[in-house]
């Protein structure tokens, strides 16, 4: 692209380059490139013995726009989702004036790498954190927009999810500024591109799906049917199916609702492993049959899929009721003896 070519060459600087601000005269020494996106290049830089992330762009307005977002992030009490803004300035390079800003350097692996290394048990915890932060952002009238795993970093030592690219953050009610197709509800034909909290929650649900499909997948039929099938094909997703489907269909109006339901799912699926040794093995059976049932009735074609779903729901209800009754009797017996 015409604009991108010039952008890449102008903002490309070698490690060791000293960048001096025109207005605030702070000096930054470039250490290495951290990454680049549509709107510029991010470098790791040294400033007075500390490390900062420095973002440069040929397009001064996109820098200004992002700085505006970061400033309003700072006003959101208690939210640590985005990086904190440190400095905004222009650099008079030999290739002309380039706008840049510096922010806190958020260090860590991205979401996918983290989950691959540490295991899936972390997934829910991180999503609960993310939903909490999103809720704060939404309450302040913003929508994150371009939520995707590449933009999510897990920092340590206590794992905490953070966002590194705020370029898509949009005021609620406006058109989403930036998005990535796979995480965009418009692309899947499941809603508009108007910024509302449900837009972000859709993206969160797609990231959940993404954790089971690291390579993502393409739209075929689109719509909820394709996504539902994708969820049912993966065992890891089946436990979260209820929450994911609700988020995909825009049934949550705020992040807290989704968080609460995800939390209760997490609690119910963790119970068996913790209770397992101490209590009767019966308690596990309350959950196990569900899983088996769903994998068993995995749909091959979409025609008979609806019927099967209805049937399996009935079966689920019956099994749950039966096992609950069984448990209750066991409990009564224990009391009696």
């Amino acid at each position: 692209m015409m604009m991108n070519h010039s952008l890449k060459s102008r903002c490309k600087v070698a490690p060791g380059t000293v960048i001096t601000g025109k207005w605030h005269s702070n000096k930054y020494t470039v250490i290495k490139e951290l990454g680049y996106g549509a709107n510029g290049i991010v470098y790791l830089a040294k400033f007075k013995n500390s490390q900062v992330a420095l973002k440069m762009s040929d397009n001064g307005m996109s820098i200004t726009s992002e700085v505006n977002v970061l400033r309003s992030f700072a006003k959101v009490q208690g939210s640590t989702l985005g990086p904190s803004l440190l400095d905004v300035d222009d650099w008079k390079s030999s290739r002309g004036q380039i706008s840049f800003y510096t922010m806190e350097y958020i260090q860590g692996p991205d979401l996918m790498t983290f989950i691959q290394n540490k295991g899936r048990s972390w997934t829910t915890v991180l999503f609960l954190q993310l939903l909490n932060d999103l809720n704060k952002l939404h309450e302040n009238g913003w929508v994150f927009g371009d939520l995707k795993p590449e933009n999510l970093i897990v920092t340590g030592p206590t794992p905490k999810i953070r966002c590194i690219d705020v370029g898509g953050t949009t005021i609620q009610g406006r058109a989403i500024k930036e998005f990535t197709e796979f995480y965009d509800r418009g692309y899947w034909g499941l809603g508009t591109r108007k910024a509302d909290p449900a837009y972000d929650l859709f993206a969160v649900a797609m990231i959940m799906i993404n954790t089971a499909y690291p390579k993502r997948f393409n739209k075929t039929t689109g719509g909820i049917s394709q996504l539902r099938e994708a969820i049912r094909r993966q065992k890891d997703l089946q436990t979260l199916e209820k929450v994911i489907l609700k988020a995909l269909q825009g049934h949550y109006t705020n992040a807290l609702q989704m968080r609460t339901e995800l939390m209760s799912l997490a609690m119910s699926s963790q119970k068996p492993s913790s209770v397992n040794q101490s209590m009767a093995s019966n308690s596990t059976s309350t959950i196990q049959p569900q899983k088996v049932n769903q994998t068993g009735s995995q749909p091959k074609t979409r025609q008979n899929y609806r019927k099967k779903k209805k049937k399996s729901r009935w079966a689920e209800t019956v099994i749950i009721t039966m096992s609950l009754t069984l448990l209750y009797f066991l409990y009564i017996f224990q009391k009696l003896l």
Binding site: R174, A175, G186, T192, R193, K194
Partner: peptide
């Protein structure tokens, strides 16, 4: 897709 994006504007 373009009309979807643009029609999200006010």
């Amino acid at each position: 897709d373009l009309s979807l994006s643009l029609n999200a504007r006010t």
